[in-house]
């Protein structure tokens, strides 16, 4: 059983680790995969597996892979958020295991988001299709 003070300590610690707005420049890079029913049905499991394997293969100890629920844009699943400390969140859409290697190499290792896989690019294409 945890006391109220202990719970508060967990809150602070976890908030720092989650680093949602990139406040902590020394925190870990977080890869968060949408793993609700919609995401899993669209193929999120192999994408998550792909990230874990690629990150292990490169021995990137400062990167964690996690999961989350449905953000609502089910038509763009599988969706992956990459939180880089100090530079905020980038959302990738329609992810596949094939795209994982490029996101790891270009974004996570070299700090350059893969623009063409992001939600911004996906929405841009959609409006030019119309």
């Amino acid at each position: 059983m945890k006391s109220i003070a202990e719970l508060e300590a967990i809150r602070q610690r976890t908030l720092l680790r989650m680093n949602l707005n990139g406040e902590d420049p020394n925190g870990d890079i977080r890869v968060v995969v949408g793993m609700a029913t919609c995401g899993i049905a669209a193929g999120a499991r192999p994408v998550m597996q792909g990230f874990i394997e690629e990150i292990n293969r490169r021995g990137l100890s400062h990167v964690t892979v996690g999961q989350t629920g449905c953000i609502g844009m089910c038509r763009l699943e599988p969706m992956v958020d990459v939180y880089v400390p100090g530079s905020g969140k980038v959302t990738y859409v329609h992810m596949t295991p094939e795209k994982v290697a490029r996101v790891v190499a270009e974004h996570i290792v070299n700090g350059r988001p893969v623009a063409e896989f992001t939600i911004g690019a996906a929405e841009e294409n959609k409006s030019s299709d119309r």
């Binding site: 719970l7 809150r11 949408g34 996690g66 953000i71 969706m79």
Partner: peptide
């Protein structure tokens, strides 16, 4: 939804 890890109570606490 879509922000925290639902299987980790710490993130809900956060």
């Amino acid at each position: 939804c879509g922000i925290i890890d639902p299987e980790n109570i710490d993130e809900y606490l956060a």
